[in-house]
């Protein structure tokens, strides 16, 4: 149970700045997700918080105390690594007990704590096994158990689900959320998967090239993306970007398209079929039947490729031209620098 604050964090590796002046506040008990494409610095930021790397500039504060000089062990954080980093030569029990043994906690208490956590994560029957004898999901739970058992102030997750198969990932997502609800701890979670971020986070931090692009709740990010990057990164399938020139044709959009407007963003589900004179002509390239909906890949007159999610009644064949407009209230307009207008 702790707050976390980052103040003007900079990190330079061999003259390359990988984190640019990052400022962030995380409230007690919050579930924060760092999301961004690979190489955006999200894992580096997590390692700076953990104390595995040291900051080049700025301060890391845990519970309003600067911890820059504290070692990883003394910051009270627990980390779940992408590869789980379970000690392969130790049993599940020894893996979970290792941190407690290092903290010189009496044997009996260690046994009790490990048993509690094992029960919580349904690992009771696996305690004597070695990590290599466990499935991916079980290893994941051991890694989480190893973090929980030390009762840390802050949990740090570094892409913990990326090694699991799709089905398990979805169920582990749920489990992690439930765990957060039960423990009420501050958690920082790194992922490159925006779906994971959207479904799990209280607060999402979108990073790109070492900069924070936007911080907000999943809903805020989805409905009010601050710039083209966030707009394109959050949401699946991706948002479509139509040039303002082309969108101007639609009369009802005209008031929103000012002289600064450069690009118009429309989410695939916000397209509406319409009559010929009201909409933009879209040549269908291909379509995917998804059951409740159909995803149509099309091409606008200027060659821009767009994705349109419609109800299945709109059956379209490749080569066919359909006419689409969009819900004016759900359109995002960006200027030439990609910023939201």
């Amino acid at each position: 149970m702790s707050t976390l604050e980052l103040r003007h964090i900079n990190k330079v590796f061999d003259q390359t700045t990988v984190i640019h002046d990052v400022n962030l506040q995380v409230a007690d008990g919050e579930f924060v997700v760092f999301v961004g494409p690979s190489g955006c610095g999200k894992s580096t930021l997590l390692r700076l918080i953990a104390g595995l790397d040291s900051v080049t500039g700025g301060d890391v504060l845990i519970d309003a105390e600067v911890v820059n000089a504290s070692s990883a062990a003394d910051r009270g954080c627990a980390m779940v690594f992408q590869s789980y980093a379970l000690y392969p030569h130790m049993s599940v029990y020894a893996n979970m007990a290792f941190g407690l043994e290092n903290a010189k906690i009496p044997k009996a208490e260690i046994a009790r704590k490990v048993a509690d956590v094992a029960a919580l994560l349904r690992l009771d029957s696996l305690l004597q096994r070695k990590p290599t004898q466990l499935s991916g999901g079980q290893r994941q739970r051991v890694a989480i158990g190893r973090a929980i058992v030390r009762n840390p102030n802050i949990f740090l997750f570094d892409e913990p689900l990326s090694n699991l198969d799709a089905e398990l990932r979805v169920s582990m997502r749920m489990e992690l959320r439930q765990l957060h609800r039960r423990l009420q701890s501050t958690m920082v979670y790194v992922t490159h998967d925006q779906v994971e971020a959207m479904t799990m986070a209280d607060k999402i931090v979108v990073l790109r090239a070492g900069n924070i692009e936007q911080v907000g709740t999943p809903q805020q990010l989805y409905e009010f993306p601050a710039n083209i990057f966030v707009a394109g990164f959050i949401g699946s399938p991706r948002m479509n970007f139509v040039s303002a020139e082309l969108a101007k044709v639609l009369a009802y959009l005209a008031p929103r398209i000012t002289i600064h407007a450069h690009t118009v963003g429309v989410r695939p589900e916000h397209w509406v079929a319409c009559s010929e004179e009201q909409g933009l002509p879209v040549q269908v390239v291909s379509s995917e039947y998804l059951g409740s909906q159909t995803l149509v890949h099309g091409q606008l007159s200027d060659g821009t490729l767009v994705d349109i999610l419609t109800d299945t009644s709109l059956v379209s064949n490749a080569g066919q031209v359909i006419h689409m407009s969009f819900d004016a209230s759900k359109v995002h307009v960006f200027d030439a620098n990609g910023l939201r207008l």
Binding site: L52, A72, A73, C77, F81, Y87, F98, N102, A103
Partner: peptide, 20 residues
């Protein structure tokens, strides 16, 4: 990562060497 995990687990450098 194993060594970092041990470091997060409060292990001294000697213990990291000896136990991991």
């Amino acid at each position: 990562e194993l060594i970092e995990a041990a470091r997060m687990d409060h292990a001294s450098e000697w213990r990291i060497y000896w136990r991991v």
